[in-house]
Design a protein around this nucleic acid. Structure first.
Lengths: 140, 140
DNA sequence: GTATTTGCAAATGATTTGCAGTGCT
DNA sequence: AGCACTGCAAATCATTTGCAAATAC
């Protein structure tokens, strides 16, 4: 995805410079906290305000463009909506990586939910641990 | 579990009235935000301060007595540490319910992680949707 | 008795809001 | 032109901190 203007318009939002900046930065890094986004975005557009980021994150979540990734012990990060996946979250460096959801996991979860009378909307599978990079640093 | 005094001492913490109150309330309701805990706990112990709750939640998480359950769009809730399980989170009423993790899910995740050079510490499987109670209310 | 813990009040930090001005379409 | 959006500053809300008094052991 590169055409943020189209994505925004499809979602009923005006394609402002600020919004495109925010989306570009999130896409580039994958998962970003509000502060992360702010720090990156002002490199390109120094007058962009934090308030604008907050307002737009909320708006773009409502429109389904962004998704919140809440993380134990840290601030939430935000990602661009994409097909279902799991998160590997490093408790040392805070990095988040995506991995595809396995079909079998998928099937099992759906079966479970059917038995439950629970109307499933969204799954969030987060695996907390130490990433390869941080493991190597620990070893040294 | 009922013996909070023992649990606390095993964890190297003094068994104060305040801490036992906090644990009782979390156990009783299952999953509680800071505010939830505060509102319940002052019914029994009106002078207990919010600061004490914050300090103790942090302490008890460090000692492994409590676990944070971060939730998209809401404040984190806290639960007493227990065997691995999934959460069904109602996006309408905010209720969180536990369900056992399925063995097959378990095995799949562990295999995946071994391929990854990722040192897994903890899993968090959250299923967001609408609970039975809220579905019935919608219908009416 | 001593180290820990509590509760208060103040400090800090994060997020939200109102509004006047600006920019997309 | 008209409505939606931005940026600022102020307001609000959440969390943390410092410290004197109280409590567990």
């Amino acid at each position: 995805m590169t055409n943020y203007a189209a994505l925004l318009k499809e979602s009923g939002l005006k394609a402002t410079f600020q919004r495109m900046n925010i989306l570009e930065v999130i896409e580039k890094y994958g998962h970003m906290s509000v502060e992360d986004i702010y720090e990156e975005v002002i490199k390109v557009h120094p007058s962009l305000s934090l308030a604008t980021i907050y307002k737009n994150i909320i708006l773009m979540m409502e429109k389904g463009v962004l998704v919140e990734v809440p993380i134990a012990g840290k601030k939430s990060k935000y990602e661009i909506s994409k097909v279902d996946h799991m998160h590997l979250i490093c408790t040392e460096c805070g990095e988040v990586e995506d991995r595809p959801c396995l079909d079998s996991t998928d099937k099992i979860l759906h079966e479970l939910i059917e038995q439950e009378h629970f109307k499933l909307k969204k799954r969030q599978i987060n695996l907390y641990g130490v990433c390869e990079k941080c493991q190597m640093q620990e070893a040294s």
